[in-house]
Amino acid sequence: KVKIAGPGLGSGVRARVLQSFTVDSSKAGLAPLEVRVLGPRGLVEPVNVVDNGDGTHTVTYTPSQEGPYMVSVKYADEEIPRSPFKVKVL
C-alpha cells in the first residue's frame, strides 16, 4: 500500500548533492513513517522528512561520501516492500 519513487533511490546518486524521494502512504492509513540512511562503514546520514499534507512525504538527504548506501523505509514499524533500498553513491 505504500509506494516510493524518486531519483534519491536510483542509480547515479552523487555524493554531496541533495537527494530526494517521495513516500506515498495515502492508501495505507495513518501510521508513523521512519526513514534511515546508512552509508559506508555504518555512517548514519541526517534525513529530513516533510509531510505534504496529502498522504505523501518528501524525504531529502545528502550522502557525504561515495560508496554503498542503504535506505530503510518503515511504515507502521514494518519495512515497506523492497526496503531497505541499496543505493550506489558515486
Rank of each mutant, 00 (worst) to 15 (best):
K1G: 05
V2G: 02
K3V: 12
K3D: 09
I4Q: 02
I4H: 02
I4G: 04
G6C: 04
P7M: 15
P7G: 07
G8Q: 03
G10W: 05
G10V: 07
G10L: 09
G10D: 08
S11A: 10
S11N: 15
G12C: 12
G12Q: 13
G12A: 14
V13A: 07
V13D: 00
V13G: 03
V13W: 02
V13E: 03
V13Y: 02
R14C: 12
R14Q: 13
R14N: 08
R14W: 08
R14G: 05
A15K: 06
A15G: 03
A15S: 09
A15V: 13
A15P: 10
V17S: 09
F21V: 02
F21C: 00
F21E: 00
F21P: 00
F21N: 02
F21G: 00
F21A: 00
V23Y: 00
D24M: 04
S25I: 15
K27N: 14
G29N: 07
L30P: 12
L30D: 15
A31D: 14
L33I: 10
E34A: 14
E34W: 08
E34K: 14
E34Y: 09
V35A: 05
V35I: 12
V35L: 04
R36G: 09
R36L: 09
V37A: 05
V37Q: 01
L38T: 15
L38M: 13
G39F: 02
G39S: 11
P40K: 03
P40M: 05
P40A: 05
P40E: 07
R41Q: 13
R41V: 08
G42W: 05
G42I: 01
V44K: 11
V44C: 11
E45D: 08
E45T: 10
P46Y: 07
P46F: 06
V47T: 08
V47S: 13
V47M: 05
N48L: 09
D51L: 10
D51V: 08
N52M: 11
G55I: 03
G55K: 10
V59A: 09
T60K: 09
Y61T: 00
Y61Q: 00
Y61W: 11
T62K: 08
T62F: 07
P63R: 01
P63W: 00
P63S: 01
S64Q: 12
S64N: 09
S64C: 11
Q65E: 13
Q65H: 12
E66A: 13
G67Y: 00
P68Q: 14
Y69T: 04
Y69S: 02
M70W: 14
V71N: 00
V71A: 03
S72M: 06
S72I: 05
S72T: 09
S72V: 07
V73S: 00
V73G: 00
V73R: 00
K74M: 07
K74F: 11
K74G: 01
Y75L: 08
Y75M: 06
D77Y: 08
D77K: 08
E78L: 07
I80S: 03
I80L: 09
I80D: 02
I80A: 06
P81D: 09
P81C: 06
P81Q: 07
R82C: 15
R82Q: 15
S83E: 03
P84A: 01
P84D: 02
F85G: 01
F85T: 05
F85D: 02
K86I: 13
K86F: 15
K86P: 15
V87D: 02
K88C: 14
V89M: 03
V89Y: 03
V89H: 04
L90Y: 07
L90G: 15
L90K: 13
